[in-house]
Design a protein around this nucleic acid. Structure first.
Lengths: 210, 210, 210, 210
DNA sequence: TATGAATGAGGGTTCATTCAT
DNA sequence: AATGAATGAACCCTCATTCAT
């Protein structure tokens, strides 16, 4: 019944101590995320990253096997930022509609905060190889499933009136529409502020769900 | 009142005969679109393109100034495929809802046909420089405005009941959701066929518009 | 008794009419001399020259066999400018010293006028192949011999008191010192105007010769 | 009072150990000087230099940023050869004329030894960009100033009778006339051996100075 | 574990020259 | 004689990765 066909992509290292790996990779990710989103993955040099991380190239390549690994770590990191922001909102005690509204708000706000990173994630995901990409998609799926569950709760509670097949699509839409705020900002920001965007979105989702 | 802030990005050439340029560029685009969508822009060599186009590298670079120019031509070409498919449907004599439905169907069907290219367009747009990207976005805007007009007609006819600010968003959504069928196919195709996707989308858009 | 060991280097052409060749080459030289002295021989493109000459590349290569031919023509042209300016002064009726002075003055003045070209000639002469270079050197020799004769006249007249072996060197010096005004202008112009340079030179040459 | 308008041109490197840089650059210069003077700067390939230096291209480009940097190093190296040969002669205890004679002899002898390199330096100096060229000229000026001082000593001692404005010109001449032995060897060697050239030059300079 | 010099294949682009029209 | 598109070898430089210290 598991939806994940395979294990997670594992980034190799020659370093034994897992804590050190975690810490060093954190340093790498922190700078890589910034440089990648400024110049793009391909235009960024491994040396550049190492320098910015205050680390030697050789050292960096002990915590990571390839440049692509860094991209994978970065993509996962960005995704985690979004995921954690979403999971941080408690919707337990709310009625379903308010729950969804809170989720959407949280989602769109975090995307707004890290929109450069979201754009990066969208564009450079293609530079991952099959394995890494699949593994990354699993994470994305996890997030969507969270939204599906939220909507399902509303249906089960008799509050949302929406066909089963629409549920999935609406969940996908909520997600993609948060990303849209990043990757179509060049178009949307001409007409919307974040607040107006969220408000309009919420109104539309209410129309759809009830 | 013009929405275009600047002229179109012009791809340079040293060849004087415009017809020849058109023809030769067509040959370049045809192969580049395929290779790019198979291997990605960065992984593709200019020589590879020239070879595939049955052309000398030097010759190719007379019709194009940089590798990026090829990408721009490719992106525009893909966009044009979508645009033309949309403009080909006649919705003149239809009632607004049927018009939108026909538009959506046409849009989603063409995206389905060229979905690899649409993904390419999404990902590699970032590799264009500012000028070229802006110029490309103008084209995208043109397409969205077409949808806006279609919706507006429905509103003016009193058939669609939707706030002014939602119009733009719905138009953007229709567009992005066509792209979604390409760039989230890995997720959507688990649950949807194209037909089911279109049908569900239409149902949702009917809910929204009426 | 001829000092030229071999014939002149001949620049090839496929065009029959010698007058047309002369005229067209004149057009080529006129622009090439300017572009070469602005950007240098290697940085200049044959197409650039053809364009500037209002000529097609193909056409140009009918009046010239290689790019180097253009350089050769240019070098000869520049040399001719200097030579003609020198030959234009009449020193027939002057006493030897005044003759030399007039020669020097003419020489230095023309070099001043075309100093960029002289620098070009000095630097790019090396880009000529053996044949062309030898041929060019013959022209240079011709000019030096003119000066040798002038000095000799002074010696024969009993006015100049200078050893036979010095004659040649002094002639070479007069020539090179005119070039110096071009190729060491970066140094000389800090202390000298053209007039002062000429005056000082004349004083020195008077010391040497008398 | 400083004659140097700006700092020295600095050749970039990514290698940290300065001693290694010195050593490796020495290896590069040694082969480049030879290849350049055989084939000319433009006709020489960076790979050719690296190969000849028993170095990887990539390695070479860690000690040098551009091909032009190699040319700059080469020009400076050649200039240094000349400079050091000149500074090596001790003229302290000699009377001014003998001092100058010793300087000239040393200068002309070293130029004779490295005449191919001197020609190279003359011709390719133009291929340096503004910065590098200016920096190179500073070195040249240093050398000339050394000669100026030597002459000045003679004037101060009352041995040389020569106007102030001539001093500079004579110093420049001594320098250029040493170079002449290289760049007009094709003409001079027909009539002079090095010894005869030096002897004649010395006689002329004596005439001028006393 | 950290350092940083070495590696070398490869990539985008240029340009003198030719040749069919 | 003029045109201008075609050719393709060649060039400078980069950069992910390794490995000896």
């Amino acid at each position: 019944m598991s939806e994940t066909q395979a294990g997670e992509y594992i980034v190799g290292t020659t370093v034994k101590d897992p804590e050190r790996v975690e810490k060093r990779r954190g340093e790498i990710i922190d700078v890589a995320v910034k440089i990648f989103s400024e110049k793009g993955y391909h235009a960024t040099t491994t040396k550049e990253i190492a320098d910015a991380a205050g680390m030697n190239v050789g050292t960096m390549f002990q915590y990571v096997k390839t440049k692509q690994d860094i991209l994978y770590l970065v993509c996962c990191h960005i995704h985690l930022l979004v995921e954690q922001a979403l999971y941080a909102v408690t919707t337990e005690n709310l009625d379903p509609m308010n729950g969804i509204v809170k989720d959407i708000t949280a989602l769109y706000e975090i995307v707004d905060q890290v929109s450069d990173y979201v754009v990066l994630m969208y564009q450079e995901t293609a530079s991952l190889d099959k394995e890494a990409r699949r593994s990354f998609f699993q994470r994305e799926q996890r997030l969507r499933n969270h939204l599906v569950k939220q909507i399902q709760k509303g249906i089960d509670a008799g509050v949302f009136k929406v066909s089963q097949e629409s549920v999935l699509l609406i969940a996908e839409d909520i997600l993609v529409q948060s990303h849209m705020w990043a990757f179509r900002r060049w178009s949307l920001s001409k007409e919307f502020t974040l607040e107006k965007y969220i408000a309009t979105r919420i109104k539309l989702v209410e129309t759809l769900l009830t």
